[in-house]
Write a protein that binds this DNA or RNA. Structure first.
Lengths: 231, 231
DNA sequence: CTAATATATGGTCATTTTGACCACAAGTAA
DNA sequence: TTACTTGTGGTCAAAATGACCATATATTAG
């Protein structure tokens, strides 16, 4: 990298957009906010905003998500930068998209000052997003499909304690397929990543299933031993 | 910070850095350039530069790589944006790192006007890179290790036609392991991604091996049928 | 209470895949 | 000739997979 920027080599602005996935009642959701100000006022779009000067881009994503929706302390990773020259109408804006997974039950949404509203939408029913947000969604959903098979991140979409059927339904929803119950359990059991709680489901109108937790400590040890997660 | 920056102009500049991998004689290399001007003058660093106003970031990466090294028409994908506030000394620069794979036949380098020199270095011997380039290298090498196992991108590091042993040695170098010759071939054969040429190695002092080509068309059909590449 | 129903949980079995090895062929060099 | 290197194909036991099946446990309708 050279040090002197050429006179015409400046981007007008660098923004952040967050693609937040949630899972509830067998449905895969994404979180949108209704913009209270700016160009896309009144439209549902990905939560986002501008990076501050002394702030890392990861921190900016955390701050923006929290201030727009009240959500904090979740699985968050950088997805990709999107920078087509025409992606934003009035000027040259490059955006860095973030990818987040949320335990939906744990958060009641609190719209922040630039968001007049925040709401969960089914991934498959979202449409009419502004800018290149449809592209970001498509890319991010592909990323989720891939990542969920190669790393144990699905648990970030479920409550702390969950049943094996819930987990299976999550995978079925994300991967848009059906899985054999028995084989799914066998595979999970072999990985030894789940710790059985001494608890069962409550308030269900059938035999109660046992509750499990994802044990991150075990995963880290296995990973360090070179054992990969594949599903 | 004395003056509060306007909300949409808080980053001083957006740059590109390219992490270019090559493979030759069983060694995994990366491409560095010696900076001819600017802050890091005289030091070896990742090739990079500034994005132009009307240019997509992908195009900027292609242009910069070509103008600095003469390399074009290669495997290139976005890696990640790096934006720690202190990553660059004099001002706030966010960089978007790119990830490239180069075939041996494109190994000859033509240093461009801001690079006084360009050279291949063994991945394991590189040190003393400026800025956060060590971090980018580490992240990118991890990315390569992961990706090479889940997508057939390794072929981008080999000549058009290659032997099975060359391919195996590539995997061994990237993954830092050894593989069983027989099992490796069996697995490859089952995937049906390689097309045997009617040619053999030349000028070798032992039995000449058959040459193979990676058939991208077959891969695309298989992928569309949902069949994954795993090694 | 009993039967129907829904889910949990565990098992079978043929087939495929894997990992570790082995044997020999083909070509070069001394 | 022999030694050496690499290519190519094979064996075999162990492990993993995919498609089913069987039974247990809880709830609710009658």
């Amino acid at each position: 990298m050279t040090a002197k920027p050429a006179p015409d080599s400046v981007i007008d602005a660098l923004s952040i957009d967050c693609l937040v996935f949630g899972f509830k009642d067998g449905r895969l959701d994404i979180l949108l906010i209704k913009h209270g100000e700016g160009i896309s006022e009144g439209r549902w779009a990905l939560p986002g905003g501008w990076i501050n000067y002394g702030e890392s881009i990861d921190d900016a994503a955390k701050r923006l998500l929290h201030s727009l929706t009240g959500i904090s302390n979740i699985y968050l990773e950088q997805l990709k930068a999107f920078g087509h020259p025409d992606r934003y109408p009035t000027k040259r804006v490059v955006t860095i998209a973030y990818f987040a997974l949320v335990k939906e039950e744990h958060y009641s949404l609190i719209p922040g000052f630039t968001a007049s509203d925040a709401k969960w939408f089914s991934v498959h029913e979202v449409s009419d997003l502004p800018y290149d947000h449809p592209l970001i969604l498509k890319y991010g959903y592909q990323h989720l499909k891939h990542k969920v098979r190669h790393e144990p991140i699905g648990f970030n979409l479920l409550p702390e304690k969950f049943t094996l059927l819930q987990l299976q339904e999550l995978y079925e929803a994300v991967l848009e397929t059906t899985l054999d119950k028995s084989n799914f359990r066998r595979k999970l059991a072999k990985m030894k990543l789940l710790k059985k709680c001494d608890e069962k489901q409550k308030d269900v109108s059938h035999r109660a299933a046992g509750l499990y937790k994802f044990d991150k400590r075990i995963y880290v040890t296995l990973k360090n031993r070179g054992i990969a997660f594949e599903l």
